[in-house]
Amino acid sequence: MQSTRQGTGRWTALTGIISVVMLLIATYMAFVYAPTDAAQGNAQRIFYVHVPMAWLAYLAYVVLFIGSVGYLWKRNQTFDRLARSAAELGFLFTTLVLITGAIWGRPIWGTWWQWEARLTTTLILWFIYLGYFMVRSYAGEPERAARFAAVLAIIGAIDIPIIHMSVRWWRTLHPEPIVINTGGPNLPDSMLLTLLVSFIGFTIFYAHLMLQKMQVEMARDRLAEREADFLMRPVGRSKNETTYPTTGREVTGASED
């Protein structure tokens, strides 16, 4: 037990240091090393944060999905902690994709927002994350909140591709907005390298945040468990005496790692 906790701590520190170094390099590369795009000018450099944010927004949802399926299947608290942590970070990154995208869109498209398939789907994703937190906070007891939220997350995971497809179909039936080609596979090597460093740096940073958040959630669950055990201990002599001598396990029934 003690050794695993030390192991987690080491990983947290390691991912923290690596990601900070890589992100500093990535920022330098984005501002100085990468050449200015001929068509978009400096605004193109926004992509070095925007694209990793988009990747993390969806990666976090994949983790949320895995945690949710795992929880409904195994009823293991660890899976629920994974889902909770991923949802919070996913929401942060989704907010950031939308904002950085709008800031890029303003000078390039001449408008903050386009009702285009990827943008619309990401906006819906944002609302699904929001709904996820609402369910968690209003569902009452923690076990029920975890169950309800997991069902929502799984339905959302299956719905997101459907939303993307339906919006794309809807938009292609309408006159397509003129969008400047944003690069594609034939980016100059220096741009690609910058994007890659930023990509990997942010991904490790995400791993770092996940480790931290998971540890916080684990400590919180442990505390709740101990409090429940304490309140429901066999002979109640405290002021909040309860009449349930041995049902303490029920509250914390989910298995621990």
């Binding site: 605004a43 450099r45 944060v49 904002i99 800031i103 916080v216």
Partner: peptide, 29 residues
């Protein structure tokens, strides 16, 4: 084209400020 520099700084600033805000919130937790 050089005017876009403002948008560029805004995008990076928002990103890092929000991440800093999240770290602060996590620390508070």
């Amino acid at each position: 084209m050089d005017d876009n520099l403002g948008y560029l700084f805004a995008a990076f600033a928002v990103t890092w400020l929000m991440i800093a805000g999240y770290l602060y919130y996590l620390n508070g937790q």
